[in-house]
């Protein structure tokens, strides 16, 4: 699980060009949207494509995304339980 969390932090920083952040700056429970990393709806789309491409998880319900993208820890937990890759 800790490896997956590390991998997600690295991928998100690279994918979303979060040049201001390093892996150490992101706490596992930090909010991804709003006050935490400050991601927005376009980032949500990028994350949905990443889930499909890297882990074989297709999100079809937008409400589902709201739950899953709460934090890195929640996202890692969801991937662990649902990954096809």
């Amino acid at each position: 699980m800790s490896n997956l969390i590390q991998e997600l932090k690295e991928n998100i920083i690279e994918l979303l060009n979060l040049e201001e952040f390093s892996v150490e700056d992101i706490n596992d429970d930090d909010a991804l949207f709003g006050d935490g990393l400050g991601l927005d709806s376009i980032d949500a789309l990028e994350l949905m494509v990443m889930l499909d491409k890297d882990y074989g998880i297709k999100l079809t319900d937008p409400k589902e995304g709201k739950e899953i993208f709460q934090s890195i820890a929640v996202l890692a937990d969801y991937i662990e339980k649902n990954r096809a890759k």
């Binding site: 994918l15 990028e46 494509v49 499909d52």
Partner: peptide, 13 residues
């Protein structure tokens, strides 16, 4: 690279 799948929005927009 992705065989016309997994297209992310930012570079397209």
């Amino acid at each position: 690279a992705n065989d016309e799948a997994y297209l992310t929005p930012t570079s397209f927009i």
